[in-house]
């Protein structure tokens, strides 16, 4: 059934169907944490990391649920396992490397409730990806998320020094930029087809 190459999966997840700009996943952190370049890059890195972990977890759970024939537990077990795993990782990092925690770990709790993470898990199951494909898909999604975040952070940082009219200040402006970026990313349509 699956004829997509890994490259196509990656391109699709990162550019053509960018998680933020085409699927609207992870909008909350996208709006919130994109104000500063520094936070944006770190957040991107953390999201990528968690996506990879949760993608592997989700693959495992799915396999398990197929065995016990309980598809209805899919959502609940995904979210619980992802949340707990992330929390474990967070605690682990906090204990092992406070520096790493400061730069990456503090983003972890926020990420748990990031729809992009759960989105990756659900979509990879829907698309019936294997383990390797899932990982590539998660990686692509993470790269796409980071890309969108970094681009918008750069633009927003530049616009902190602009005479933005008072009515378009804040979230509205970010959304407008996101809209234009979303149009830009339409240019990638068909790539890797």
């Amino acid at each position: 059934m699956n004829t997509e190459s890994l490259g196509t999966i990656f391109l699709n997840a990162s550019l053509v169907n960018n998680f933020v700009l085409a699927y609207f996943l992870g909008i909350c952190p996208f709006l919130g944490v994109s104000g500063k370049m520094e936070t944006a890059t770190k957040m991107g890195g953390a999201v990528m990391f968690v996506m990879l972990i949760s993608s592997v977890c989700a693959y495992g759970i799915h396999a398990f649920l197929v065995v016990i024939d309980a598809p209805y537990l899919q959502l609940i077990s995904y979210i619980v396992v992802i949340a707990s795993t992330v929390q474990l990782v967070e605690m682990f990092i906090k204990k092992m490397s406070p520096a790493l925690f400061q730069s990456l770990g503090i983003f972890l709790p926020l990420i748990t409730t990031n729809c992009a993470i759960l989105g990756v898990a659900l979509f990879q199951t829907n698309k019936g990806y294997g383990l390797l494909e899932s990982v590539v898909y998660a990686l692509g999604a993470g790269v796409g998320f980071t890309l969108a975040l970094v681009l918008i952070a750069g633009l927003r940082e530049r616009l902190t020094f602009a005479e933005v009219p008072s009515i378009s200040k804040g979230t509205a402006l970010t959304l407008f930029i996101a809209g234009i970026l979303s149009l830009c990313f339409m240019g990638f349509a068909g790539l890797g087809a």
């Binding site: 633009l155 234009i180 970026l181 149009l183 830009c184 240019g187 349509a189 790539l191 890797g192």
Partner: peptide, 17 residues
Amino acid sequence: WGGLPEGVMYSILLANA
């Protein structure tokens, strides 16, 4: 490689970004 015949507009907008 893309789906569109023309990409100048998107390229410039992306480069702007």
